[in-house]
Design a protein around this nucleic acid. Structure first.
Length: 423
DNA sequence: TCTGGGGTCCTAGGACCC
DNA sequence: TCTGGGGTCCTAGGACCC
């Protein structure tokens, strides 16, 4: 039996690259993309990284740098990123027999059968060139016998220009060489907390971790860390998941552009989140049994009056009906609402999901299932079309959850009226 | 003045049962 | 006075990822 080979394909500076694709005029300029509400930096172009802009810094802290270096700033444009992501993934589907879309800008490929035909490096280069040709997106490719090592290979392909963006890490000696110069915190699954704890134990590099006793580490930490150690030693513990598993929870939450103190306003906001969450739920073809609503002040407040609370309910029968969810959510809000609080964030969470088909009905609870289904389908159809939107009165007349998006780029690829023009 | 959103998995500890 | 042991289920919270 041949041992498995995985490739990790990862887009470089994905959001920033998406923005640059349609703006050749800023090709070599530093670019940053901000989170919702134009809050934090969530993506940086190569040039912006070189200036020293860190991932996750609040926008207001880099105002001077932006001015000084002429950094081009964008609000996040998820419609654009999702569309570009689809194009990249479709290209990958043509290049490899099995693809796992791992996130918006990354995919694992199963290359187990490929190594007979061509060298790994050649294949990786072909992937890189083809994706660039088809989409304009630059990707790096890392290949190795486990997902964790493939991640590491990709990290190195990005970090070391001499690799040409493609790294074959299938050989043991090369794995050891790379791991011995890579900080343990760069390993997939090792975050800041674990890094600190591992360093206490004298584990500094990826190689140190690979050399640790997996049984011992499991006892000390968890089964997850044990798996990571085995993966670093070339033992594949994580399989390729071609079919995305059904979601287990759906969350819709926002920080507000300005604090909210008015209950009626909060009701509208929660209504909007429920609406959106229910839409996602139906798109997944699932129903939920459990609904949670939460509201809170800002963690960053220094003065008193911090407040954070959540309330939840379990339905007798799973539902995907926005009306039922919204009624329940508003009751939950009533139960946790406190006056004279400056709320900064709120959200709703749906859990205990199950397939929408074959729902067990409640004998004593007369819901008109047919009508509900028809109404929700119609609602989703209207909102998917381009002839206007339909929403519930309790969400307010205009969507009150407009957030700060001062630097939004056009919907180049998803709206005819925004299509780029060549003059 | 100004600090994102949406997920997953694992573990510890309490409640409860026999 | 003396007060078991083992199992399951649930939840909250921590840690991680992108």
């Amino acid at each position: 039996m041949t041992s498995p080979v995985f490739a990790l394909v990862d887009c470089n500076n994905f959001y920033a690259s998406c923005e640059k694709l349609f703006r050749p005029d800023i090709k070599d300029q530093p670019v940053v993309v901000l989170s919702n509400n134009d809050g934090c930096v969530v993506a940086r172009s190569r040039e912006a990284k070189a200036i020293g802009i860190k991932m996750g810094v609040p926008a207001f802290q880099i105002r001077e740098l932006i001015k000084q270096h002429g950094i081009v700033v964008f609000s996040s444009n998820y419609a654009l990123y999702a569309d570009m992501s689809n194009r990249v993934m479709q290209t990958l589907e043509h290049l490899a027999p099995q693809v796992e879309v791992y996130s918006i800008d990354e995919a694992f490929l199963d290359l187990t059968a490929i190594d007979q035909v061509t060298t790994m490096t050649e294949f990786g280069t072909q992937v890189r060139n083809t994706v660039y040709q088809h989409t304009g997106m630059v990707v790096c490719v890392g290949m190795a016998p486990s997902k964790t090592l493939a991640k590491l290979a990709n990290y190195a392909a990005k970090k070391y220009p001499a690799t040409g963006g493609v790294l074959d890490l299938t050989h043991r000696t090369r794995q050891r060489k790379l791991m011995s110069i890579t900080p343990v915190g760069e390993v997939w699954g090792i975050g800041s907390r674990l890094t600190a704890q591992l360093q206490q134990l004298g584990i500094q590099t990826a190689q140190d971790l690979a050399d640790a006793d997996p049984k011992q580490m499991r006892k000390h930490f968890s089964v997850v860390l044990e798996r990571t150690i085995r993966e670093l030693n070339g033992e594949s513990c994580l399989e390729l998941e071609q079919q995305a598993p059904a979601k287990q929870q759906i969350l819709c939450s926002r920080s507000f552009g300005e604090v909210v103190t008015d209950k009626a306003m909060m009701k509208q906001l929660i209504g909007g989140y429920v609406s959106r969450a229910a839409e996602k739920l139906r798109a997944e073809q699932q129903c939920c049994r459990y609904l949670q609503v939460f509201i809170r002040t800002s963690f960053f407040r220094r003065d008193g009056n911090q407040y954070s609370n959540a309330a939840s309910t379990r339905f007798p029968v799973p539902t995907d009906d926005t009306r039922a969810l919204m009624r329940a959510a508003h009751l939950l809000l009533e139960s946790i609402w406190k006056h004279d609080i400056a709320y900064a964030k709120a959200g709703v969470m749906l859990t205990e999901l199950s397939p929408a088909q074959n729902q067990q009905q409640d004998l004593f609870c007369a819901t008109d299932h047919q009508t509900s289904r028809k109404l929700m389908t119609l609602l989703d159809q209207i909102n998917a079309g381009k002839y206007g939107k339909a929403w519930f009165a309790s969400q307010g007349k205009q969507s009150p959850w407009t957030m700060k998006r001062g630097h939004l780029s056009p919907a180049y690829t998803t709206d005819w009226s925004h299509i780029p023009q060549v003059n």
